[in-house]
Design a protein around this nucleic acid. Structure first.
Lengths: 264, 264
DNA sequence: AACGCCGTTCCCCTTAATAGAACGAAGAAT
DNA sequence: ATTCTTCGTTCTATTAAGGGGAACGGCGTT
């Protein structure tokens, strides 16, 4: 091929394996049992290919077939690997009491999240833990899920305290996706926002990823100094009113500070 | 090859995919970052093969490379899938208070587990949740892990209440592995043991999987009637003395009963 | 009885993964 | 400094293994 070192040195990719991974990701997207034919149709593969992929995955416990319906679902081996994958389990257990307390007090969804560098898709946040409320239907992301960092409270808090050179690099490689009218897509505007967040010590997400969804986030400082995670309270605009915000901000910041102190 | 239809109709297996799964499983076994060369040596593959497998997995977030060491570790996508894979998350959250209470009261490790039919390896148990104690070094299996059902307290409880025809089928297809002097390897002896467990309402594991490890387990009945999970208290023989057993049995059975009542 | 749908199996062909060697950078040992 | 190792990564020819496509057999419906 072309030059000596064109920037994105396309990593080698095993087709058969990548297809299998796509199949697994489809389960994540659909969140329900899927049949061979269905998967093949959705991904544009052949039935026989999908069948062999599933058979191989099943052999190692990565998926499991429902004997009644013949359809497939994710297997327990993924649960075991997932538990192992997350280096923040300790943090999660330690933080949980505070999350609970926040959830109880404000009756809104509470999140714990960390930053992740998903090479091609730019900076993303991973939800490590979540406290649900009794309110019907939560629009907020489930535990384990990832979403772009530039359009959420926790994401902006984490970006604000991330390594600067790393940040510039990440911002440079991919444009900021737009989800709503309020999504910040201009890197320079984002810069200003991050500076404000550093000064204020908290971040707001005012319908930047989903219309009708607001959130308040604050950073958690690790024992060695730098920010390692963030917590947030989020809910529908109807309940997250301007009048209520100061109280929520104070609550989140106080909890984040208490957790940080506990980590030292 | 040979005959027309040898009994176990060997499911088709995609080599490239299966190798990738082996790589992931190796991480589970080693529980630490691994390098390309290391993995290749342990699995007997070529470096280039392992490299491409890891590159593909990394592309989808299934593994992540440590930029400093060049070594690899499991990625967050596995965490997300793992969360989704486990259909017992609701049960886990519901049961947790009781597990906590048991752990507090007896200061021993507490487990919540369910039964899984791992086709080739026979019946196995999956650890859904676990409460650790302050005692140093727990020998007991981590959350998400699987182990043979015939040689653990929860395993025997679950087998005792499993579907009979299914049980015979599973017992028939693979011999019972022997781990210690006390492991039950004779299906007929196991039968008697299971009958005793059904009558007594609890099971004991007296160093049947690991020398020096004892445990007490009791069944949790689901809303529709049949046993759906089991809880256990386990610890070293030094602390799980004969004199203390009655108290532990009573505690576990009482908790299991309370949980079952809550599920109805 | 006939149809349609699904998971599963089959078989040929060709693509795509593998084996094996080589490269270049980074440490460790000298 | 220099050599020697060892690592992750890249390259290429060969061939085995995965993909394409059709057919099978069970099941529920019409």
């Amino acid at each position: 091929m072309g030059g000596k070192k064109t920037l994105p040195v396309e990593k080698p990719c095993i087709q058969a394996l990548d297809r299998a991974l796509q199949v697994l990701l489809l389960f994540q997207q659909e969140k329900r049992e899927l049949g061979v034919t269905e998967i093949a149709a959705k991904l544009g593969y052949y039935k026989s290919t999908v069948y062999r992929v599933l058979a191989t995955l099943e052999g190692r416990g990565f998926v499991q077939q429902n004997e009644l319906t013949g359809k497939y679902w994710l297997g327990f081996r993924l649960y075991a690997l997932g538990m192992l994958a997350n280096r923040f389990m300790g943090l999660r257990d330690l933080v949980r009491p505070w999350l609970r307390e926040l959830g109880e007090r404000y009756q809104e969804t509470v999140h714990l999240a960390v930053l992740n560098d998903n090479r091609e898709n730019g900076a993303e946040i991973i939800v490590i833990d979540k406290i649900e409320t009794k309110h019907r239907l939560s629009l907020t992301p489930p535990v384990g899920s990832s979403s772009p960092a530039h359009c959420s409270g926790v994401g902006k808090v984490l970006l604000a305290h991330a390594d600067r050179s790393w940040l510039y690099q990440v911002l440079g490689q991919a444009p900021l996706a737009k989800f709503t009218e309020n999504t910040i897509t201009d890197p320079r505007v984002l810069e200003d926002e991050l500076a404000r967040i550093r000064r204020a010590g908290y971040a707001l997400d005012n319908e930047e990823i989903e219309v009708g969804l607001r959130c308040v986030a604050a950073p958690i400082y690790g024992p060695s100094g730098p920010v390692m995670a963030a917590i947030s309270i989020s809910g529908p605009t109807s309940r997250m009113t301007d009048g209520r915000l100061p109280e929520l901000i104070a609550g989140v910041m106080e909890a984040a500070r208490a957790i940080s102190a506990r980590l030292e």
